[in-house]
Nucleic acid binder design. Structure first.
Lengths: 138, 138
DNA sequence: ACATGTAATGCAACAATGTTGCAAATATAA
DNA sequence: TTATATTTGCAACATTGTTGCATTACATGT
């Protein structure tokens, strides 16, 4: 398992408390987390702006990525190492419990774009019910 | 070509100026429009809240749909009549000129979800360059 | 361990957007 | 034309995104 310090070192980023806090939170989670979910029991530990800028920094350095859901809410997850070829980023969002999962390499997408259009990356959000919620609700 | 009045009538919605304005704007456009793009030269014609609530009403009645882009911005487009089977909503977003196109029926998506997960709908945003911007930039 | 330059932080402030309640205005059906 | 339910505009507030700047903390070389 890769450590927080390794992740920061690899990107030539200084080790700061806020960066460690965020990376740790995501390393320990099996799902994507919103800013508030990340802050958890320590909503005041860092200034709002620091948190905001740290998320930007981590994203710019390819450590995390942002997932924008259909309700305008935003979650973050660690980047996986394996880059797939058409730059496909797929996530599942449970409409009931709000959890978001990264669907690494388990999706396929094809599009016929108009002539001369160029695709750089593809973002997919599947909306539905996770296993738990599907069984409770039905 | 279907008219604004037909669209409203079909959904048992009262004909109001704001509803007509929005539907008209989208009918006349070949691309998805943001709230400000819709307002165009008449940014003050309707109250901000009226516009906001009208968009919600139209979306709830299945007349329009919302497209949330990766930069948190939002655009709107008329719904197409043909419902595809896995409820796939695909859009192209030009990173340069910001235009958004609906890719009706020109995309295919498959996912292996974890056991017992249920998919209701799939939202795809392709980020890239449209033909015009691709030629200018390269 | 310490000084130093660079980078990150916290604060204040503001912008944009989402959201609600309520009284006044308006659309439709009789 | 009138009655009634719906829609509107206004005020107000919440949330999130964003910038500038003075202060503080980090990592490097000594």
């Amino acid at each position: 398992m890769i450590t927080v310090e390794e992740i920061l070192r690899k990107q030539d980023l200084r080790g700061t408390a806020c960066r460690r806090f965020i990376i740790n939170g995501l390393l320990e989670s099996d799902r994507a987390l919103s800013e508030n979910e990340l802050k958890g029991d320590f909503p005041e530990l860092f200034d709002r702006v620091t948190f905001y800028r740290t998320l930007i920094t981590l994203e710019e350095h390819g450590i995390i990525h942002k997932i924008v859901l259909n309700d305008n809410s935003v979650k973050y997850a660690l980047n996986s190492h394996h880059q797939n070829e058409n730059n496909l980023h797929s996530h599942f969002h449970c409409e009931e419990c709000d959890e978001v999962l990264c669907l690494e390499g388990k999706t396929r997408f094809e599009a016929e774009l108009p002539d001369n259009f160029v695709s750089h990356s593809v973002f997919v959000v599947i909306e539905g019910f996770c296993a738990d919620c599907a069984s409770h609700i039905k």
